[in-house]
């Protein structure tokens, strides 16, 4: 999820498909109003237009069980680490 509008979100998905040569098997959501980004306290303190890269694992009860905050803009938590956390919870 990002603050991109529908068109930019679609472009980002198309770009990723071309790059990886495969479908993306999870929804990529647009929060152009940034209400959900604010609700998850993920608004970038230096640029309110953008979300900070935060990853959450939410359990079946709707409770946040794990969180990772990427400090540097370019950093992302590798998917393998998220899967590892999912297996441990």
């Amino acid at each position: 999820m990002s603050s991109d509008d529908l068109a930019d979100t679609r472009r980002a998905v198309d770009r990723a498909k071309r790059r990886f040569g495969a479908d993306i098997r999870f929804p990529v959501l647009s929060d152009a109003e940034r209400l959900t980004i604010a609700a998850y306290n993920a608004t970038d303190p230096f640029n309110a237009q953008l979300a900070r890269p935060i990853t959450y694992i939410i359990d079946e009860r709707g409770v946040i069980r794990w969180k990772f905050l990427d400090i540097r803009v370019g950093d992302r938590i590798p998917s393998a680490e998220i899967i590892n956390e999912l297996e441990q919870l």
Binding site: P27, L29, Y40, A51, E60, R61
Partner: peptide, 28 residues
């Protein structure tokens, strides 16, 4: 919230069914 094609997804649809990995990214 909608995906790029306008299809809506709610967290509530997953509660009680599955765990959800929610990733915020900066966008383009």
């Amino acid at each position: 919230l909608p995906d790029g094609d306008g299809q809506l997804y709610s967290l509530a649809d997953y509660i009680g069914q599955k765990r959800v990995v929610l990733v915020f990214y900066r966008g383009s």
